[in-house]
Nucleic acid binder design. Structure first.
Lengths: 244, 244
DNA sequence: GTATCAAACTTGTTTAAACAAGTTATCTTC
DNA sequence: GAAGATAACTTGTTTAAACAAGTTTGATAC
């Protein structure tokens, strides 16, 4: 449960939109009415609305109002490839997700690795090679590198369970920010061997750099996804000629 | 040039970060100092900073300050697949981009098309089939559908030039919002015929629904990208257990 | 009836103030 | 010197007010 008031308002409005309490493609009540209904200031309401805009739920129009542009996902939505961990995604969709560690090692970043990951050369790292299964099908292969000084004490046994539960629960690391790049790459022999690709010879690759609460990048992960089960959603807002 | 003050501040700070005036991985001046330097209120500054956070330039840390986490793109960055039009992307990167219309037609959305695009069945549409070249190489194939009542008067000749220039310049349509989904699909015979795929048999597909200033979806485009030249960037911010 | 203007809406931007909460440095106390 | 309290920072949240700007409604004049 979020403690900030604007986050609570965000979820209240989001739920009313998703449940259809606010009719699709119609205008929501005006700011004035929502303020009275939700008992908040205009600024706080507007902050909640700004997040709804960002998430693609409503669109505001100066002088007119805000329109509900939410549409329920049309297909059974596989929303992998987000900042959610695999365990979280699986739980949210009531899937049976399991993982297998293929390798766990301590490495030092050489120039090649440093260039690929963004860590400084010489950085001491944990390397974790994981395979994620969904309903017994191998769908995602992850190559992860964690800074040893941040993810202190990480072991193969912990990685078997959930790395993020250890980082957040035990080490109290706050994961704040994640820069991600999605590309499509030719499948390697390793991909073909482990991912049951069928006759596809390419896969979706999500490279992410993750920062902790101190602003230091502590994780680089290259996530190689079976193309049939990869789906990446985004909502872009354009205003006054500039793209955000 | 953005007229809003917070957008000006955003660009001022963004430029200082990109140019290295603020040292990488160091703290920026505090809000207090930036307010004095930029001659603005705290709220306006914080709005600019919030956009820098979203764009992945800085990371704020309560009690500590804001850290510059910008890193210049390491490889010569092909950043296609954004909300930018192909013409805009090409111009920004000083590339020679050309387009070819393969088909232009007026169609009516049947149930299948309606299901795929999100338009209501029976909607009158323009269909535009385009091929985009970068330095003479065919890289992107677009299947676009525009509502006839919104993109009124669109012709094949206009599409040869720039559709968005017509929509924004002539019809004064404000493009506000674009919902996008990235997937990886098996290449069709059409893809192989037009896109010079080499030995790849998959490609990146960006499906987008674009809304105008009235909140009506007026465009659906399926953009099929040559895998070697597809790159999609994103920055995710996670806070207090919820993902935004 | 029609056109025009004005009033009453709507959202967008900016400033100000106060308090909450997390971090760092300093000073005190032992 | 070490520990702990305190003061002085930092960013985070909330409220209030005023004005700007776009849209709709309705009254007025013709």
């Amino acid at each position: 449960m979020p403690k900030a008031k604007y986050e609570q308002l965000y979820h209240i409005l989001k739920n009313k939109i998703e449940s259809g309490e606010y009719p699709p493609h119609e205008l929501l009540p005006s700011e004035h009415m929502l303020i009275a209904e939700l008992n908040c200031s205009r600024n706080t309401l507007r902050r909640a609305v700004a997040e709804l805009v960002r998430a693609g739920y409503v669109q505001t129009m100066q002088g007119k109002g805000m329109r509900n542009i939410f549409e329920p996902a049309r297909q059974a939505t596989f929303t992998l490839g987000t900042i959610e961990s695999f365990a979280e995604s699986a739980a949210r969709n009531h899937w049976h997700g399991t993982s297998k560690i293929l390798d766990f090692a301590k490495v030092t970043a050489d120039d090649t690795l440093a260039h690929m990951t963004g860590f400084a050369p010489g950085t001491l790292l944990y390397y974790v090679w994981r395979l994620h299964y969904l309903n017994e099908h191998p769908l995602i292969m992850n190559h992860s590198y964690f800074r040893q000084d941040v993810a202190h004490g990480l072991t193969r046994e912990i990685a078997e369970e959930s790395i993020y539960r250890y980082l957040e629960g035990e080490l109290h690391i706050h994961i704040i920010n994640s820069k991600r790049v999605v590309t499509v790459e030719k499948a390697t022999p390793l991909d073909l061997q482990y991912l049951a690709m069928g006759d596809c010879n390419c896969l979706a690759v999500v490279s992410s750099q993750t920062y902790n609460g101190d602003g230091v990048m502590f994780e680089y992960t290259q996530s190689r996804h079976h193309p049939d089960y990869f789906r990446f959603q985004d909502n872009a807002v354009r205003r006054s000629g500039s793209i955000v």
